Amino acid sequence: MTAPSRLSPLLEQFDFARERLVHRMTGPVMDSGDGTDTNVDPMTDEEYLWEPAPRCWSVRRRVNGPGPHATLLAGTGDWGRDAAPYPHPWPPPITTIAWRLSHLSEMLTLRADHTAGAHALTRDDFPVVGDATGAVTAFDAGAAAWRTALLSVDEAALDTVGYCTYPHGSDPDEPFIDIVWWVNQELLHHGAEIALLRDLYRARQH
């Protein structure tokens, strides 16, 4: 199926941001921003879970319970992601790479299901990963599922309010083209945050 013309630039932006983030986390080189390659080491488990400030939110072993100001561990499996019902703590807690990457992966996976799947997945169904390699794999799987879902839509779907029924956002109330834009924005800004945390982690070792 050929992507609608309005969707094509958003797909290109998504693909670029996804590839750049994966390379930024795994190496051996990344796009420096000017088209040249810069060497980068793969992210370690220690870095993935590094808390750059007190009272960070992160992913944690479920047996240890939630972190500071969190009231629950979202997801399923031996690990969970710090969370709290609305209203969230203020000021918002600083979050680790692990938290941000898990958030992105869950969002992409669930939005894909609520666009072109069973419209059934919830946050309680999403496995939270406690190691860097597994987390990158989960992110790539979620991104691939979302992209496949996008390729299933036509022009009419882009204008349909509530085409994506993802329950944790404005998806049921917005035209689908706006949701596609929003997902790109989420990937771009959280990807930049992850890149900055990698820089800060590296700088503390020198």
Rank of each mutant, 00 (worst) to 15 (best):
S152T: 15
D140Y: 03
P127A: 06
T137P: 04
A145L: 05
A138V: 07
L151P: 08
G130N: 02
L158P: 00
A144C: 06
V128Y: 06
F139T: 03
D131E: 12
V153H: 05
L151T: 11
T133K: 09
G117I: 11
A120I: 11
A144D: 03
F126K: 00
A145D: 05
T148P: 08
V128M: 09
P127C: 09
H119P: 02
F126N: 00
A145H: 04
D140T: 13
L121E: 02
A143Y: 04
F139M: 03
A157Y: 02
A149M: 13
V129F: 00
F139A: 06
A120N: 13
E155K: 13
D140Q: 15
A135Q: 04
T122S: 06
F139K: 00
W146N: 04
T148F: 04
T122H: 03
A143T: 01
A132T: 07
V129E: 05
R147P: 03
A138K: 07
R123L: 02
G130Y: 04
A135K: 05
F126M: 03
V128I: 14
R123M: 11
L121Q: 07
G142Q: 07
F126T: 05
A144Y: 06
A157N: 15
L158G: 07
D125Y: 13
A145T: 03
P127H: 11
A132C: 07
G134I: 03
G117H: 00
G134T: 08
A138S: 12
F126G: 01
G134H: 06
F126S: 11
G142C: 11
A143C: 10
W146S: 00
V153E: 03
D124S: 15
V153K: 03
T133H: 10
A138M: 02
D131F: 03
A141M: 07
L151K: 10
V153A: 00
D124C: 12
A135T: 09
D125G: 14
G117T: 11
R123V: 11
D125L: 14
A149F: 10
R147F: 06
G142K: 02
T148W: 00
A157M: 14
V128W: 02
L121D: 05
S152M: 15
A149V: 12
R123Y: 01
A144F: 09
D125Q: 14
D131T: 06
D140F: 09
G117R: 01
D154G: 13
D125C: 13
A138D: 02
V129Q: 09
V129S: 01
A145I: 09
T148V: 12
L121P: 08
A138P: 02
G117M: 05
S152Q: 15
A138G: 04
A149G: 14
L151V: 10
D140M: 10
L121M: 09
F126W: 00
T122L: 03
T148S: 10
V129C: 02
G134Q: 07
G134P: 01
A120S: 13
G130W: 01
R147Q: 10
F126H: 05
D131H: 02
E155L: 13
W146C: 01
E155A: 15
A118L: 15
A157C: 15
T148N: 07
G130E: 08
D125T: 13
T133V: 12
R147C: 01
T148Y: 00
D140N: 14
L158R: 09
T133L: 08
G117V: 01
L151G: 03
A157Q: 14
R147D: 11
T137M: 06
L121N: 11
V128D: 06
